[in-house]
């Protein structure tokens, strides 16, 4: 059996499991980030903070949250690929990597869809379409997804080696929420702080998406190759770890 068929069948299965058998389930995928954006919108509005020039508050938050969610949600789903699906591994043609590929693909498709719906709606309301460079957005989303896949694989491997590592994932992931540019742009930061946060590759994916969406956002500090190197290294380490733990997966 080809790997393609297996990944295809897994993707359908994962979609059904996550969103339920009804079409309405897809709405939930939309509701969660929409509520998050709304919460921040209200908070920002009360705090009297406004978006950097050339951006509406809504699209500023949305362009930050969508790539971040692709990253963090891919990490979560990939690192649970074995433990959440142990029974599937009884079918010898299903390998952990197949589950990982299906989940990465599903997360990517979900948040690209969410992004399109949310910002599409805003464009309709404001009657103003201003996508500066769609390819940059695709690039940013792709990088966020690859970073998530790589880090998720690393956690997947470490989690099979030790239980403590599995529990450490949540706390380790939390700082990303604050330093990935959901609430700020790299340009708006004091230079010293900027130096620091630019070490975070996820921030570069957010910056890329904003550069792609906002026409006048030229002061981007995104270095795509930096994020790409991170993604490739994480993927290499993650795939290596998968080979190490492959024989140790305990089905019982």
């Amino acid at each position: 059996m080809g790997q393609y068929e297996v990944v295809h069948a897994l993707t359908i299965r994962e979609t059904r499991t996550r969103f339920g058998a009804h079409q309405l389930g897809y709405l939930w995928a939309l509701v969660e980030p929409a509520l998050m954006i709304l919460t921040f919108y209200v908070l920002f509005a009360f705090a009297g903070r406004s978006a950097p020039t050339g951006m509406t508050l809504f699209s500023f938050i949305a362009t930050g949250i969508c790539p971040f969610l692709i990253f963090s949600s891919t990490v979560t789903f990939v690192s649970n690929a074995i433990n959440g699906n142990k029974a599937l591994l009884y079918y010898p043609q299903v390998n952990p990597i197949d589950v990982v590929i299906a989940r990465v693909f599903l997360e990517f498709a979900t948040y690209v869809g969410v992004f399109l719906v949310l910002l599409g709606l805003e464009t309709l309301v404001l009657r103003k379409a201003s996508v500066s460079d769609p390819l940059l957005i695709v690039y940013g989303f792709g990088l966020a997804s690859l970073l998530g896949a790589g880090l998720g694989l690393v956690f997947l491997g470490l989690g099979q080696l030790s239980n403590a590592m599995e529990r450490a994932r949540g706390p380790l992931m939390r700082p990303f929420f604050w330093v990935s540019g959901i609430f700020f742009t790299a340009d708006g930061m004091p230079p010293q702080a900027r130096e620091l946060v630019l070490w975070n590759p996820v921030l570069h994916t957010v910056e890329l998406c904003r550069a792609g969406w906002f026409e006048r956002y030229n002061d981007t500090h995104a270095t795509p190759s930096y994020a790409l190197i991170w993604a490739v290294c994480l993927l290499l380490v993650g795939l290596l770890l998968e080979r190490v733990v492959r024989r140790k997966i305990d089905l019982t």
């Binding site: 059996m1 897994l10 359908i12 059904r16 058998a21 029974a87």
Partner: peptide, 29 residues
């Protein structure tokens, strides 16, 4: 070669019996 028969753990509880069977049929071509 089959999976160990008599084992129903390969089913996902939140999916219907039909969806579970579809999945297995697909991966076995």
């Amino acid at each position: 070669v089959s999976w160990p028969i008599g084992f129903a753990g390969g089913f996902n509880g939140s999916l219907t019996g039909e969806d579970n069977c579809k999945f297995v049929a697909r991966i076995y071509g």
